[in-house]
Amino acid sequence: MQKRIFHIECNDPVARDTFRLVLRTDGPVLVRSGQFVDIALPGFFLRRPISVSDCLPDGLVLYYKVVGEGTRAMSEMVPGTELELLEPLGSGFHPEKCRESALLIGGGLGAAPLYLLAKELLAQGKTATAVLGFNKADEICLAEELRALGVPVQIATMDGSVGTKGFVTDAIAAVRPAFDRFYTCGPLPMMKAVCAALDAPGEVSLEERMGCGAGFCYGCSVQTAGGPRRVCADGPVFDKEEVIW
């Protein structure tokens, strides 16, 4: 973990209340899928933990949703603005544990870290299929970016405006993709349903309100099958068997 200054290259709305933030810095950036960064925002005491959607040679691509005053302030930041980040944080996904083909299941902004994961899987010569769930069509993001990598994407929307009407589990049942390992990030009820429905080994990215983001304040601890774990440092990615729903 290190503290570094990045500057905003672009910070654009891409879906309802959803922004795509591209950050650049001096020097190489090394972040693995499932890891996150913790961003200091002027005027706010705590940092904002944001998952990494893509890692560039000297930068990062992040997606965030405006959910409160901090992310509202972030959405108003203009290109050139400097931001201080702690990075990289967290454990990340394990693409190396996938044998041949992976199923990536995202709910809402949970799609963001799956993009970098898909790139890592493809670089390892594996294949990936993505199933992304959203409430409505205007929330859809990252589907085209994943397709551009060559990853087939199936959408599920609650209102049926795009793709399968219903949950990601409905879309998975409709498509019946072949996979030997799944990876999921999104709302807890969605991930619970996914883990109950799928027989294969799987990894789950948890979210929790954090203090330090780096494993020393114990503000984001959860009980797991293996005992207490810090979401920020022991996770956010856990094997599905570890999660106590």
């Binding site: 706010f44 005491f45 705590l46 309100r209 954090m210 203090g211 304040c217 114990y218 503000g219 601890s221």
Partner: peptide, 19 residues
């Protein structure tokens, strides 16, 4: 194990913890 989460709340010029 400590308290249930959320254990952290941001405040103006500070924070609340309930670890």
């Amino acid at each position: 194990f400590g308290n249930p989460t959320p254990r952290i709340a941001e405040c103006t010029a500070g924070m609340i913890n309930s670890v």
